[in-house]
Each structure stands twice: as C-alpha cells, then as structure tokens.
Design a binder for these strands. Sequence first.
DNA 1: GCAAAAGTGTTCACTCTACACCCATGG
DNA 2: CCATGGGTGTAGAGTGAACACTTTTGC
Lengths: 228, 228
Amino acid sequence: MAHTYEYPRPALTVDCVVFGFDGAGLQVLLIRRGLEPFLGAWALPGGFVHMEEDLEAAARRELEEETGLKGVFLEQLETFGAPGRDPRGRVVSVAYFALVRPDRNPARGDTDASEAAWFPADKLPELAFDHSVILTTALERLRGKIRYQPVGFELLPESFTLTQLQALYEAILGRGLDKRNFRKKLGAFDFVVETQGFAGGSHRPARLHRFDHDKYEALRSKGFLFEL
Amino acid sequence: MAHTYEYPRPALTVDCVVFGFDGAGLQVLLIRRGLEPFLGAWALPGGFVHMEEDLEAAARRELEEETGLKGVFLEQLETFGAPGRDPRGRVVSVAYFALVRPDRNPARGDTDASEAAWFPADKLPELAFDHSVILTTALERLRGKIRYQPVGFELLPESFTLTQLQALYEAILGRGLDKRNFRKKLGAFDFVVETQGFAGGSHRPARLHRFDHDKYEALRSKGFLFEL
DNA sequence: GCAAAAGTGTTCACTCTACACCCATGG
DNA sequence: CCATGGGTGTAGAGTGAACACTTTTGC
C-alpha cells in the first residue's frame, strides 16, 4: 500500500448553485466573499474538500457553514478545472446544484449579515472566478431536468396549490402554460395528490396538494417516464 | 497572489468510458493494468491530471497514450470521489465518456498487445477500483442522451446505411424498432442525408447516408428538439 | 355586488404505432 | 432462380394544443 503520487496536485473545491423560488421567479443564493481574491464580490457558496471527506458531504458542509441550509436536494452538476480559473493557482471545482424549499430557508430575508442573499436568476451581479459559467450551466441543467423529472417539488413548500406549481414551471421554462392542459396532465399522474388543506386569500381558497414520493418511485421503477 | 492552501490535497485523475459499436452490440474499451494496485485487472483508461493541464485535455492525453485513440467525441460524465475508492489513498476521478467510430479505431482487433480490448457492454469482466460503477453511470447517460441528441452518429462510420443506424439505436435502447417508422421519422429530419454511395453484399445494395452536422446545428439553434 | 383567483371539457390537428409486400443484387 | 437484406404507405388510436365561462371567497 505504497504512499504513491508525489506529484504536485491541484487543489479541490466544491461550489453550490442554490436555486429557490419566491412565487414569481427563480432565484439564486449567493454569498459575499470575505477573503481575497475577489474580496467583496458575490460568489457561489463553496470551499475546499477535506481529505477523507466525500464530495457531496463537502458540498453539504460548506452549504451549511456559509448559508445555514441543510437537508436540501443536492445533485452533482459538473466539474470545472480550466487552468487559470482561480488566480491563486490550480484549483479544480466540483459543482453541485441545490434546490431549496421556501419554508426551510433561513437565508431568505436575512438582513443582519450581508453575507448571503437571494438574487433573481435573470438579474445576477458579476460573480467571482468562473462562477457565472457554472451558474449558466446549472440553469440549463435545471431547465432540462424539470421536464422529465419531478424536481420542481423541491422548490415548493410541502403542500402547494396547483397555481403555484404552474407558476414555478412557467418561471423555469420561461413561457406560459395553459391552465387546463397543465392540470389535466397532472391529473393523469397520480403522484400529485390533494390534501385536506386550503390556501387563504381575498378570493376563493385553493386546494393544497402534495407530491407523493412513494407513488412516484413505484411508477418510475416500472419504467415510467414523466414528461410535462 | 499568495501561494495559499497548504492543506493536504486529494490526488486527481481522469477516467474514460469508451464506447464503440461493432454492428451488433455496444462495446466498451478496457485496458489491462500494468501496475499495482489491481495489477492485471481490467480497468478504464485514465490517469493523473497534470498541473497546468485542462481536465478534458488530460482525458484526451491518457486516451491516446493508453489506447492510441484521438479526435474522438468526449464529454464529461461525473466526478467520483468517495474516500476509499482507491486503496492507495484519496483519489478523486473526473470521469468522461467517449464515442468512437469503428473506422478510426486502432485498438479494434488489436492482438499483439494484450493491453487494450473491446468487451460487449452487457458482458463485462470485473473491473478495478469503482470502475464498474462509473461504467454503469456512463451506460445510463448514453441511453438517456441518445434519445434527444444525435450522438449515435459518433459511433458509426462517416457514411452508413439506415439499417446500421437502426441496429445501433436498438442496441443502445435494448429494444426493437419498427423499420418503416424509424425511417419515416428520420425523413422528417433533414440532417440525415443520402450520399451517392452504396454498401455492397450478397443482396440489394443499401444506400449510404451521412449526418449533416451543419444542418443539425442550424435547426438546433432555432430551438429544435430532436427526439427518436 | 364586485374584484380576484379557482376550477372545469370539448374539439381538432397531429403524431405514434401497427402492419406486409415487392425490389435489387450476388451467387 | 433463390436467398438475402433494402425499401416503401396507410389506417386507427392516442396525444397535445387551443379555447371561455362559472364558482367561491373577502371586502
């Protein structure tokens, strides 16, 4: 069991593209850098991978340290390793993308620390390093993925109205959808089920629904393909 | 421009899952390891990333060094970094998948060196490290990808018969397709065009076709979605 | 009673699927 | 002339898209 590899090694980081949904538009969680380089610039949350630490675990750890988020949906996106992407030297970054429900979101409305903040996905500031590239990649992935996998539910509260769900799809896909067709298609899948609750407001209350993960898994394992 | 990061760092490698098509089934190119650990075992071609070397460049370099292949279709797959995946210590591997045309394939039928060999994708030997996991991931990705992106052409010669193309799709998707429907759908896309050539054989010659990359790009940029 | 959002069906066009026979060549 | 794979069309079912009005609630 030799201690091999006495070559110089690139440094290894993880970065997270965190998406949220505020009811109207898709949002991205950024942090303000407190260190050089790019001190004061906005950047994706992330940091160095420890020895003996799994990559996804590193992403979750950094996410919690820098934004307080835990237990979110997280999936590997792509690894960015162009020489020169970090002015300090060779740094390779494994990027993840995360989806956060608005109800378990400590950073939302966070004003005491100007360290983490949400930005509309279509109106982002300049970012440190190559983080804009990573972000664009993540957006494309999300747009592609939402069409054939039920990831959208990770951006809504546990129970939601069908109008909210439709607004989410419209925001991500960037185009309007027909209300009756949208609901008809959902009706065909039985993994979106009614709850007993209703949402309030100055108008007719909307029935709340939830995503039934077990029913979805049962269907999917039978070679079922979701498509919206 | 501090020389920061005096932490211990994981070692970084690239590994390539190389797919080929022999006219009947999907194949994977493996190499026999000449070093410990797993000496003599079959493994994915790959190796260490140099400092100052782009990740994809590293994958291409290793591919050429170990199999002689160059200029192939190559795309990043996923990064595997579980602690313990390499008995020598912490090694993180960025996996790529490659598609090679049978006509520019030096390794095919290679018998003098028992170093690289093709295996049917559904009948693989035990592999070193976690390479079986990587391979399974690559297969899933290929199956998913071929349905909405014209990657299949990267596995066929420059010009091919429609029967060959259909056989390829059937091999990857793992089910039979209707000949008339298959050809009807291709006819609707005008990026598969007739050439003047014919394939020989003891029977009626088949018209050769080719993939028109420019026409495809023109369509795709207009928001066109390929689906087979 | 009015403003605001919720909820609900039908028709038409198009796409997908199933299906069987004649054609061109080499031997 | 026969064996082998190449090449072609149609009908019926299913799916996707367009489209407008009634209901329920708070104020």
